[in-house]
Write a protein that binds this DNA or RNA. Structure first.
Lengths: 216, 216
DNA sequence: AATATTTTTTAGATTTGTCTAAATTTAAAA
DNA sequence: TTTTAAATTTAGACAAATCTAAAAAATATT
């Protein structure tokens, strides 16, 4: 059984290792809000437990065992996010901190029943995929437009919001099914997105980007 | 903000002080699965924070502040139990350990939304009352038969299960509204209850006792 | 009331996760 | 390639929550 703190390290290493592997000590220190010296101590501990492969001065990566644990925490985090948004009417920006706590509740029965109660969701409210209990991610045929990065291209293949004001708005902007788009800029301030569509530049709010589904 | 451990001490002192006030060090040690010396240390700490009134060698009781915190934890514990049973189909004996963890999630928004989602339940699956967000317990006019102790008397005033097999079963046993009953024995083995009703002895399972409401 | 027993507290040590400051290793720059 | 800078690790310390063993206080017994 891992401690709350160890679980957090595993989760953070998992997220960071998607960007660069192995993961550096300082990167972890920044995320955990601790000092590099503390991270070094913890890496030794996780290494002793064979949850990470750690080479002094080089960096750290998850072992299979560690990776499975990390994915399980991610799974719980995202399932709870779905619960908070769909059942308790949380807004998408209100869920993170609470899910950070809920993800550490360890009960297989709870996790699986929750999954069932939520009708086996494949993505969380931010569009991130939810792994199954064996750690496998469904390969999604589409992702939310809000998940794209600058210069990413794709085709509009669906929406996740079906109200008529929203659909009318899309039509007015020319954002209809099958159209090819490219992200030209993401505005940090409000998360709004600048798109290239048929050589025209248009701007959409983050709210809109969240509900447009893109296939690559 | 209190630590997980401090919260557990407060909760345990709250429960124990219902039986005897002030609470003794050894009683706490037994419940927390620690040693008396550790309890003494923690009582000093809680006393410094003005969460308990602690007199050396005499015992400890909760201050108003400490009591409110304890009740809030009890509130969360019982709400989560309702959630697990009603929404995730946990059995009444499967909920405790998980609720012990969930009760420490601190988010007022979460607690209040959960309460709303569950339609403001007044009792948990064991029949224990759920305090409101201000720490007030509704004074229930009835309690579950399963909450009675040997020699307790009362009148049947309702049921919490309305399926026809259940109601037919009650009728066959003569357990109808308005009847006076007395608990003559509780069988530890399966939690079944022996009742005196109109000078006859009858036996009912714990399952049945859970769904009969009694007023005194 | 004196003695024995139980309960509680103190003193000092341990573990976990953290820190600062100094030393070491690696990477970058002159 | 030597020097400088950045990243990382070691060493020693600290706070939280626990422990054991011994001392002190309260309670029970003769």
């Amino acid at each position: 059984m891992q401690s709350y703190t160890e679980e957090n390290y595993l989760k953070i290493i998992y997220h960071l290792s998607i960007i660069s592997n192995p993961v550096q000590t300082n990167a972890i220190a920044e995320r955990t809000q601790t000092k590099a010296a503390s991270v070094t101590d913890m890496l030794k501990k996780l290494s002793d437990k064979e949850l990470v492969d750690y080479v002094k001065y080089q960096g750290v990566s998850l072992t299979e065992k560690g990776k499975l644990m990390a994915i399980n925490i991610v799974r719980k985090h995202r399932l709870w996010e779905v619960f908070l948004v769909e059942k308790l009417n949380f807004k998408w920006d209100e869920v993170h901190e609470v899910a950070e706590e809920l993800e550490h509740i360890n009960s297989t029965l709870l996790t699986e029943r929750l999954d069932e109660f939520l009708e086996f969701p494949k993505v969380d409210p931010h569009g991130d995929p939810i792994p199954d209990q064996y750690g496998n991610f469904a390969d999604l045929s589409f992702i939310k437009l809000s998940k794209l990065k600058v210069n990413d291209k794709g085709t509009i293949t669906g929406v996740s919001e079906h109200s008529s004001p929203f659909l009318k708005h899309l039509e007015k902007l020319g954002l209809t099914l099958g159209k090819k788009i490219e992200v030209s800029e993401i505005i940090d301030f409000d998360g709004s997105v600048e798109l290239l569509i048929e050589d025209k530049k248009i701007n959409i709010s983050r709210e809109v980007a969240l509900h447009i589904l893109i296939s690559k």
